[in-house]
Amino acid sequence: MARKVEASERHTLSVIVDNEAGVLARIVGLFSARGYNIESLTVADVSADHAVSRITVVTTGTAHVIEQILAQLDRIVAVHKVTDLTALGPHVEREMALVKVAGSGVERDEALRMADVYRARVVDATTGSFVFEVTGSTDKIDTFVALMGEVGLVEVVRTGVVAIARGREAL
């Protein structure tokens, strides 16, 4: 009898933690020890007194694996709250990238045209290169980087995903 295979899904998790040494290492260690992949990880202080940070983790897994991740994160002492933004419903995700493109003549003009279409800002320019800042969904960033690859892509630096639930309530 064939066993049904669960589909792996991408989930964006918000983890509110004490802003103290070692918390990030414990969270990353949890993923690593169990063989769970982290696609994106961002951390930032989110309180006026600098006591609390928000970690945004993008991971993939079956529904069962995601449930395990949520339960295990919730057991870490320094964790105040874990929210699966994907399961919660509508939320806003953004990422920022700095994209360095070198070229001259037609390639340079084409890079500027594509940057305009993707609403990328020129944040540095020399006679032989540009550095663009582009913000948007992961798919938008991926597409922009692929297009720049055709006109002289040199280097890409990305922030990772940040996300927030829609609506009036705070997490």
Rank of each mutant, 00 (worst) to 15 (best):
M1W: 15
K4R: 14
A7W: 15
A7G: 08
V15F: 07
V15I: 12
I16S: 14
D18E: 15
N19Q: 13
E20S: 03
A21Y: 10
G22W: 11
L24H: 04
L24P: 06
A25P: 08
I27E: 00
G29S: 04
L30R: 10
S32L: 00
A33K: 10
R34N: 04
R34C: 03
G35N: 01
Y36Q: 03
N37M: 04
I38W: 00
I38N: 05
I38C: 07
T42I: 02
T42P: 00
V43N: 06
A44C: 03
A44G: 03
V46T: 15
S47T: 12
H50Y: 09
H50I: 09
V52A: 01
I55S: 02
V58P: 01
V58E: 07
V58W: 11
T59M: 09
T60H: 13
T62S: 15
T62A: 12
V65F: 06
V65M: 13
I66T: 13
E67G: 15
I69H: 07
R75H: 01
V77E: 12
A78Q: 13
A78H: 14
H80T: 09
K81W: 10
K81H: 10
K81Q: 10
V82D: 02
D84N: 06
T86C: 08
A87K: 07
L88G: 03
G89K: 04
P90Q: 06
P90F: 01
V92R: 11
R94Q: 14
R94D: 05
E95P: 09
L98H: 12
L98E: 09
K100V: 14
V101G: 07
A102R: 15
G103S: 12
G103T: 12
S104C: 11
E107H: 11
R108G: 14
R108K: 14
A111W: 00
A111G: 11
L112F: 13
A115C: 12
D116R: 12
R119D: 01
R119W: 01
A120G: 12
V123R: 03
D124E: 10
T127I: 15
T127R: 13
T127G: 14
F130I: 06
F132G: 10
F132V: 07
V134R: 06
S137C: 05
T138F: 05
D139K: 02
D139C: 01
K140P: 00
I141P: 00
F144S: 05
V145M: 10
A146S: 06
L147R: 01
G149K: 05
G152E: 09
G152L: 10
L153H: 14
V154F: 12
E155P: 01
V156D: 04
V157F: 12
V157M: 14
R158M: 04
V161E: 02
V161G: 04
A163W: 08
I164N: 01
E169R: 10
L171V: 07
L171D: 12
